[in-house]
C-alpha cells in the first residue's frame, strides 16, 4: 500500500498525478508538495486522480487545509478522473461542493487554466 506522486507543469497549471492510496501513512509527501506549490505561488492545480484507489480523512484534510489559501490567491483545485468509491468519500463529507470535478484530464486542465489561457 503506497502512494506514487508525480508532479509536472502544463502551461500555467500544476498537475499532480496520484496513484495508490492516500491515507495517514502516505499523506506526508503529498502534503509537502502541496505546501511547496502554494509557497511558489502556484495556485492553479489539477489532481489527476485516475489511479487513486483510496482516500482517508488525512488526505481530505490536506485538501481542506490548502483550499483557503488557494481560493484567496484566486486559484483553483480541480480533481480529474476520480474513481466512484473515492468520489463517494468526498460526497459523504460534502466535499463535492468544495472542489470542481472533471471526468478527464483535458477537461480538468481547461477548468484550471486562467481565462484566456490554454484550452
Amino acid at each position: 500500500m503506497s502512494l506514487q506522486l508525480e508532479a509536472r507543469r502544463e502551461g500555467d497549471v500544476r498537475v499532480f498525478v496520484l496513484e495508490g492510496e492516500l491515507d495517514a501513512q502516505t499523506v506526508g509527501p503529498f502534503d509537502k508538495e502541496m505546501e511547496a506549490c502554494l509557497a511558489r505561488g502556484e495556485v492553479r492545480i489539477v489532481l489527476d486522480c485516475r489511479g487513486l484507489a483510496f482516500i482517508a480523512s488525512a488526505g481530505l484534510g490536506v485538501l481542506m487545509g490548502v483550499l483557503g489559501p488557494v481560493q484567496q490567491a484566486g486559484g483553483i483545485i480541480v480533481l480529474a478522473g476520480v474513481q466512484a468509491e473515492v468520489r463517494r468519500t468526498f460526497d459523504l463529507l460534502d466535499f463535492s461542493s468544495l472542489f470542481p470535478f472533471a471526468d478527464s484530464l483535458g477537461d480538468a486542465l481547461r477548468l484550471a487554466a486562467p481565462a484566456g489561457g490554454q484550452g
Partner: peptide, 11 residues
C-alpha cells in the same frame, strides 16, 4: 475549517 486552514476533525 477552510478559513482557519484546519486539517483534522474529519475522521
Amino acid at each position: 475549517h477552510i478559513e482557519i486552514q484546519k486539517r483534522g476533525g474529519l475522521g
